[in-house]
Design a protein around this nucleic acid. Structure first.
Lengths: 159, 159
DNA sequence: AGTGATACTGAGATTCGTTCTCAACCAGTG
DNA sequence: CACTGGTTGAGAACGAATCTCAGTATCACT
């Protein structure tokens, strides 16, 4: 872990951290930049990028790769958690449901890797998008799990 | 399943699919391009990109986002599987160890999402990199499991 | 305060992966 | 044969992220 000692808490860095802490979505670097500029209009994008990776490397933020092919996202919630990403609107919600330790150990044993962590994202439709896309009647109820194993290409092999 | 009907099997597309099937690593689009050019020197990169996303959208290939911030990777192994990514050398090995159904259902129930799939990557150090980075003595002896150390290996089926 | 070393900043250029544009090209159909 | 519509390849364009570099702020010491 990069020494915390040589990390100066400059106004720019504070501003970035503030924005990240205030965000409850998972903003991209560009979004962070845009928000930071509202309070620190003179900040440059390079500084935002630098600061974000600094925060990540010192454990003050998490970098998410939601695999939507687009930009990296950042999360000030540094506790171990996973995400469910909506195929409809792209929104990501936090999940608190760790992979069982036994599974990690098993993976480590089988692969020989020294496992240090994992990234897990579920994909699917958020309640809102289910409501909008499929028949709106059923959506309102919304409680149904509907573990729909069969949407586009996600999980089938075609031999 | 996106219609297979309207997918013309042109020589270029065949070449890309061939390369992907022959690969046991997880090549990036650029790597696929490079390999395809060995047999089809006149192919353009746009065609390779187009073909890859075509293959992905018709379920013939998987697109991986190994979160190393870099390019997307492609995998002709379309069976549901996960990966362990080495922080040292960036190599990714296949894992065959699905998340328990109960967990998916639980996530779906809690979040209200209609879960269609998930992406799971473990991070850590592969046996080789463990050997090289920590004391080299231990490396040779291979105290650990030392599964299939050779690069690019898929290590399903250890059991 | 003064001085030098060092870290930080911001603007712009640069790189890289990917997608878009568009003219030329083929493969079928009438 | 001409038409039609999907396909190709070259290069331009794009967005994300990083790099470069001169200027600036901050620290450690005197």
């Amino acid at each position: 872990m990069t020494d915390l000692a040589d990390l100066r808490l400059t106004p720019q860095r504070m501003a970035v951290l503030e924005v990240l802490r205030a965000a409850d979505d998972h903003p991209t670097a560009a979004e962070v930049y845009e928000r930071v500029r509202r309070t620190s209009p003179r900040i440059g994008s390079a500084t935002v990028y630098r600061t974000l990776s600094l925060l990540v490397s010192t454990g003050r933020a998490l970098e998410l790769n939601l695999g939507d092919g687009a930009a990296a996202r950042y999360d000030a919630n540094t506790c171990r958690h996973d995400h469910a990403v909506c195929d409809g609107c792209g929104r990501a919600v936090d999940l608190d449901h760790p992979v069982p330790d036994g599974m990690m150990a098993e993976i480590a044993r089988r692969s020989g890797f020294a496992i240090t962590g994992y990234d897990l994202q579920f994909r699917g439709m958020c309640p809102d998008c289910q409501a909008n896309s499929s028949d709106p009647a059923r959506a309102a109820g919304g409680t149904g799990p509907t573990v729909n194993t069969h949407a586009k290409g996600a999980l089938h092999a075609e031999a």
